[in-house]
Every structure is written in C-alpha cells, then in structure tokens.
Simulated assay, not measured.
Amino acid sequence: MAIARHGSGPRATLGAIASQIHPVFMLPPLAASGFGAVLGGLGAPRLAALHLAVAFCALYTAHVKDGLVDFHRRGEDDDHPLTRRGCHLALAGSTLLCFVGVVVLALRVDAVAALLSLPGWIVAVLHAPHLDTNPFGATLGYPVGIGFALLGGYYVQSLALSTTAVAFAVVFVVVLAGIKVVDDATDYAYDRSVDKRTVAVIVGRDRARLVAGALMSAGMAAVVALAATGVVPRGSAFATLPFLAVALVARRADAELATMLLVRASYLFFALLVVAVWVRPLSGVALPDITVLGPYTYLATEVLWGAVAVALVVRAGAVRAAARTAAVLYPFAYVWDWYTLSVGVFSIPMRTGIDLLGIPLEEHLFMLIVPTMVVGVHETLRDLGD
C-alpha cells in the first residue's frame, strides 16, 4: 500500500514524508532547546544537537498524529499528503528515532535528562484526539512541550535546573499559550460545530483575544520584572520591545494573520533572549539607588505609586469604590501592621521617623494606597473587557 496519497515512486514518498516538517511551528520549540543550551553555557555542543534532534522527532510525531486524526479520522482537513498507512509508518519511524535519542541522553547524561525530553513526545501523541478537545489541553499542550524543551536543553548542559531556567520556561509557556489561543480562533466555526472546546469556543472570539492579550502581556511583564530583579539577565527586558510592537499591530488583524505575526514575533523574542544571555549587555549596570533621598525614600515611592493609584480610580470613575474599600480594609491592615512591626517581623530604615498610632506614617499611607491601586486596576481591566 502506498505511503503518499498524491503520486507514486520515491520522490512522491519523500515529498509526503517531508511535508510534515512545518517550519513555522517547529522553530519555537527547537529555538527553546537551543536557548536552554546557551543558557546552560553550551559546554557540550554535541549533546545540545542531540537534544535538538529529539525535540525535532517529537514535533514531527505531533504533526503526523494531528494529520492522521484530523484528516483520516475526523475528516476535519480537506487534504493530507500521507495515506493512513503512511501516517502510521511515519509515526513509528519518528517515535523510534525519538526514543533512541532519549536512551542516548540517558546513557550520555543521566536519567533526568531523558525524562525531561519525554514530555514533548507524550504531548505529541496525546494532543489529538485527547488534549485538543478541552481548553487546557488545546491551549497548553504545545507551550508546555516548549517549556520542557528549554529545561531539557539547559539540563543537558548543566546537569541541574536553575531559577533562571525555570523562570524562562514559565514565561515561554505563558506567552505561547496566548499565541495558541489566537491560533485556535482560526478554527472557531469548525471547532464549535464538532463541540471542540477551545478557549475561543467557550468564551467567544472577542474575549479569547482578550485572554490571549492578557497572557502575552503577563509574559512580557514577567520578563521585565525578572530582568529588573536580576533573576534573568537584565538585557532580557529589551527582548520584549519588538514582540510588544508586533502584538499591537496584530490586535487589529484577523486570527490567521495575527497568528502568523505573533509566531514570527516569538522568533525575534527568542533570538534577542539568546543575545541577552550570551552577551549580557547590561551585566555591569546597577539599578538606580533611590536611597539618596534618605529618610524620605519610602515616602517618595508612596507619592509616586499613590499618584498612579489615584489616576486609575479617577479614570475609571471608581473613587467612591476605592475609598469605601480602603476604609473597610484599613482597621484590619492597621492591626496586622502594628503587630508585625511590634514583634520584629520587618523594619523600615528609610523613613521619616514620624509615628502615628504606634506605626510609621508611611505604613498608614501604604494601607490606603494598596486597596486604591487594586480597585483602580480592577476597574480599568473591566472597562477594557467591556
């Protein structure tokens, strides 16, 4: 029985097999594996290439399995280059190569390296027709596989996992989950007709775009925060700029075009992260030291963020709601703050020294600013959602 559905002979067979190499969706996981290797120091390039090959085989398995299910079983796709037998043979070949690579990693590195390489293949085999029928599996399968590709690539080089590697893996999962939500919206009509419960089907296409935007924004914000605190190289913050620029353009595009733009933006995001990790351009730059304000340091930060909180509640028309919330929470916050200061849980050296009712002036302001900020952000997000 033939392997290729269109044509015969070796050329048609090789073309059908090669058709399941999808560069657009293969590059991010492979880039994640390579990024993990660079993050781990890239002391063993051959092992990095081996891990990359294992990730490639897992991705190939995923594409063949999706085609087998979507065309030959569900009838969802209009065409597919491989026959049913061709799909089975391609699955067997890619799985065999994947597991050979996993065994070699176990022998050349250790069992942990092998275990970190397996989730990609597991997700590939289970994605269709199991994981893709619910919003969590459909959205998180691909990103989680990428997260493990990063961790595996890092572990193979360093024989350990670090906070930095895990932080980057989580960021990748969150950002790519947002892109996947947008991508799933391209099949909204069909998915809804067969009761395939993607995020777009459950909440609608418009709200799905909001969910996607929130996930991608959270990922970018996390990179900036982690870079500022030194958990990841400080230059990583610059990698967010082109991605955010493309995301703003993609907001007004349809789901298919937006997916293409965002996937390519993720390539640039990965590339700039590699540069940030490899070159570490801001490694010698220290954070601004605002303690030059002396005893007014804490008060100055409260004036800044208090102004932001007030601006948010004024813009959202939620001044009364913020005042009511702050008033209700204030007594509880006051007792909590007084107790923790009294027993020495924390101290505030950079303050004015002015105390009111047994606690610093700055703490009274803090207990008013925080609920105001929360109400302002909540109301602003609700306005954006509406």
Rank of each mutant, 00 (worst) to 15 (best):
E76P: 08
I179F: 07
N134Y: 05
S33N: 14
Y190N: 02
G9M: 08
V292S: 06
A247S: 06
K65E: 04
G43D: 12
A114S: 14
A16D: 01
L210D: 10
A92Y: 00
A2Q: 12
A114V: 15
D355I: 05
V104E: 09
R324Q: 14
L272H: 08
L381E: 09
I146M: 14
H6M: 08
S33I: 07
Y142R: 04
A250C: 04
P10T: 05
G230M: 11
V38C: 02
V175D: 00
Y298E: 14
T372E: 02
A307I: 03
D132L: 05
L272Y: 06
G34H: 10
Y267M: 03
F243D: 03
N134W: 11
R264S: 10
A92T: 11
A227E: 09
V232W: 02
A239G: 01
A300F: 14
A208N: 08
A177Q: 00
Y334K: 12
S117P: 12
V223Y: 09
T198K: 10
C87A: 06
L329W: 03
R252N: 13
S236M: 11
R207D: 08
I146T: 15
R252G: 13
S158I: 04
F366I: 07
A18V: 03
T133P: 00
A250L: 08
V38R: 13
L131N: 10
A62W: 00
R192D: 06
H63Q: 01
R264M: 14
R84G: 00
L341Q: 12
L14P: 02
V181E: 11
D195R: 15
A228V: 05
L356G: 11
L105M: 15
V249T: 12
A200Q: 07
L272E: 01
V303W: 02
G43A: 14
D289W: 07
F35K: 06
A53G: 13
L116T: 13
V171H: 08
L384Y: 15
G344K: 13
L293K: 13
Q157G: 04
V231L: 05
G284V: 13
G147W: 01
D195T: 14
G9S: 06
V166E: 09
L140Y: 09
P281T: 12
L159R: 15
V174G: 07
V314M: 06
A111P: 03
F366Y: 12
V345K: 10
L140G: 03
A255E: 15
A160R: 15
A316D: 03
A208D: 00
V203I: 10
I146P: 01
E363G: 05
C57I: 07
V123T: 07
A92C: 04
L293V: 09
V231N: 02
L96W: 04
F136K: 12
P28G: 12
V170Y: 01
Y188Q: 07
H127P: 00
I179K: 05
A44I: 05
D195K: 15
L273I: 07
L357I: 07
M373D: 00
V69R: 15
D337N: 11
V328E: 01
T352P: 00
L210H: 11
S193K: 10
P349H: 11
Y298A: 14
H6D: 01
D206G: 14
R192H: 14
T340V: 11
A113T: 11
F346C: 04
A326F: 04
G137L: 08
